[in-house]
Amino acid sequence: MIYDARPCELGEGPLWHPMRQELFWFDILNRTLHSKATSWPFDVYVSAAGWISRDELLVASETGLFRFDLTTATRTPVADAGTSVTRSNDGRTDRQGGFWFGTMGKKAEKGAGAIWRWYRGELRSLFKDVSIPNSICFAPDGTAAHFSDTVQGKVMKVALDSAGWPRGEPEVWLDLARAGLNPDGAVIDAEGRFWNAQWGAGRVACYGADGSFVQAVETPGATQSSCPAFGGTDLSTLFVTTALEHMDTEARARHPASGQVFAFANVTKGLPEPQVIL
Rank of each mutant, 00 (worst) to 15 (best):
S47R: 10
S162P: 02
H246M: 14
F24T: 06
D94R: 00
T150P: 04
K128E: 15
S53F: 10
W40Q: 12
S88T: 09
Y207N: 04
D210R: 11
S236L: 04
G11F: 04
A205I: 10
F66C: 13
M1S: 13
V204A: 08
T74L: 14
Q260Y: 04
I136Y: 08
L238C: 07
A201H: 03
A73L: 15
A197Q: 11
A209I: 03
Q260L: 04
T233G: 13
D43P: 04
P274A: 03
G259L: 02
A197N: 15
R254V: 03
Y119Q: 01
F66I: 01
A186E: 12
P183A: 11
K269A: 14
L126Y: 05
L235H: 09
R178D: 10
W165L: 00
R6D: 11
A253K: 14
T93N: 10
P18R: 10
A197V: 08
L176N: 07
D248P: 05
A222Q: 07
T233N: 15
A201L: 03
P41N: 12
G91L: 09
S39V: 04
A177F: 00
I2W: 13
R75Q: 13
D175H: 11
V158M: 08
L23F: 13
E109W: 00
D27W: 05
L238H: 08
L244V: 11
L23S: 03
W51L: 04
I136W: 09
R75G: 01
L181K: 15
G13L: 13
H34Q: 12
L176Y: 06
V240M: 07
Q275S: 07
T241F: 08
G50W: 12
N196E: 08
L181D: 12
A37N: 15
L15K: 05
N196V: 12
I277Y: 12
H17V: 06
G111A: 13
P14Y: 05
A144Y: 10
A139D: 14
G270S: 07
V217K: 10
A177P: 03
V151H: 06
C8P: 12
R178C: 03
R178T: 13
T76A: 14
D161V: 01
A216G: 11
G221R: 01
S88I: 02
S84V: 14
E9F: 06
A60D: 15
Q260V: 09
A139I: 03
Q198I: 08
E122Q: 11
G98F: 09
A205Y: 00
N266F: 06
A163I: 00
R252W: 00
H255L: 09
L126N: 01
F147Q: 06
G231W: 07
A186M: 10
A112E: 14
T63Y: 01
V276D: 05
G259K: 04
D248N: 14
L174T: 07
W116H: 15
R31H: 02
L238M: 07
G185A: 11
S236R: 15
L244H: 02
F101S: 02
E191S: 13
G168V: 09
N196I: 13
G111L: 13
C8I: 05
G259C: 11
S61E: 07
A144W: 05
R117S: 05
R193W: 14
G64D: 04
G180V: 05
A229S: 15
T72P: 10
S226P: 05
P7L: 13
A216K: 10
K110T: 14
G11A: 10
R178A: 15
G11R: 08
V240I: 14
D149V: 03
D248R: 05
